[in-house]
Amino acid sequence: MKAPDGHWVHSTQWVLPAHTRVNMTIYEYDGGTPLRNPVWGRVSGVYGNSYTLNGTKKVQLLESTSTKTQVAHTFTVPAMGINVPLYAVPSSKLCPAAPCTLKEPHETIQFSFYTGHPGQYRWQCFIPCGLSYLDGNGGPMDTLGYMDGFLKVI
């Protein structure tokens, strides 16, 4: 498991300036899992309520069910209304072992959001990615530094 911020920043707690537009790029290496709640397939809380996938494709809604799995993780900041479902790498093309490098297959996800008022905002993933835990919700989903973190807006 890797955090959606990839391996180049080994922290899930970031400090951001208040009232600022932040441009974010996420490299996604992981395969898809069905969403527990498909409502998290909708992009929201970011500029244009959409993101750019691999520099070209505009994405607003991703589907992730047992038949169609497109989402690997989400980057969700509930207090800011931000929800960004991350497009998954097809399971046949996953890089063999973490940490993966930029040479290996990945998806590049670009979007920007507005930080607003100062405060500590939690972010988390809404995909049950804790494999072999009940509901997929233990382990990394329940541990700061994996699928959870803070945005410290100052």
Binding site: S132, G138, G139, P140
Partner: peptide
Amino acid sequence: WIGNYIASNYAVVQNT
């Protein structure tokens, strides 16, 4: 040791 011997193939919690 017994636990790992009899059940190493399941209930292994990843990451720990």
